[in-house]
Amino acid sequence: MDRFEKMMINLLSKMGYKGPDGDAWVTQKTNDGGIDGILNQDPLGLRKVLIQVKRYEEGNNVGRQTISQFHGDLDLQGADRGVFITTSSFTKGAEMAAKTFNIKLIDGDTLTKLMIDYKVGVQVQKTYELFEIDNDFFDLIRKIIKHLI
């Protein structure tokens, strides 16, 4: 099982796509029908989201043909929605195809933000407290002192 695929299923589950009574898993490495993970949003699996992930280097963008292939894989699996995650970016053609096929695209920048927001694959190193002067408090003290004098 690919750790990156497992991490992406964990991320989407934490985001609530698994549903309260659903299930989520990574598919087998070979003969997976182009699907890397499945999120059943209900106990019977009637509403499911299929996932495909690609770890691509920057500049190796996902194109329209790859999204069209994923759509075909969704259709063969009987799913009407999917999420395609890449560490790189998508071409304009891929973005247009995804809108037509009800596929949500997550590029590397969005993925980074989501991983931080949902604390998946990251660890907090340090936490800082930021302090601000309470001017109302000091104004009150000045008034009291002025009143006493």
Rank of each mutant, 00 (worst) to 15 (best):
D2P: 00
E5D: 10
K6G: 08
M7R: 14
S13G: 13
M15Q: 12
G16K: 03
G16C: 06
G16W: 04
Y17A: 12
P20T: 07
G22F: 07
G22R: 01
A24G: 15
T30F: 15
D32S: 05
I35F: 02
I35K: 00
G37A: 03
I38W: 11
L39Q: 13
Q41D: 01
Q41I: 03
D42T: 11
P43A: 07
L44G: 02
R47K: 06
L50S: 00
I51L: 01
V53Y: 00
K54Q: 06
R55N: 06
R55W: 04
Y56E: 09
E57N: 08
E57Y: 07
G59E: 07
V62H: 01
G63A: 09
R64N: 13
R64L: 15
I67L: 06
I67F: 04
Q69E: 10
H71K: 06
D75K: 12
D75L: 08
L76Q: 12
Q77V: 10
Q77H: 11
G78R: 05
A79H: 05
D80W: 15
D80M: 15
R81A: 09
R81S: 07
F84D: 00
T87D: 02
T87G: 05
S88E: 01
S89W: 01
F90G: 02
F90I: 05
F90Y: 14
F90Q: 00
A94K: 01
E95C: 12
A97V: 04
A97G: 03
T100Y: 03
N102V: 08
I106K: 12
I106L: 11
D107E: 08
D107T: 13
D107C: 09
D109Y: 00
T110D: 06
L111Y: 04
T112N: 00
K113T: 11
K113V: 11
L114F: 10
L114R: 09
L114C: 09
M115R: 11
I116T: 12
I116W: 06
I116A: 10
D117H: 13
G121L: 10
V122E: 12
Q123L: 09
Q123M: 12
Q123T: 13
K126T: 11
T127G: 08
E129N: 14
E132D: 04
I133P: 05
D134I: 05
N135S: 13
F138C: 08
F138D: 03
L140T: 09
I141M: 05
I141R: 02
R142D: 14
K143N: 05
I145V: 07
I145R: 03
K146L: 07
K146F: 09
L148V: 13
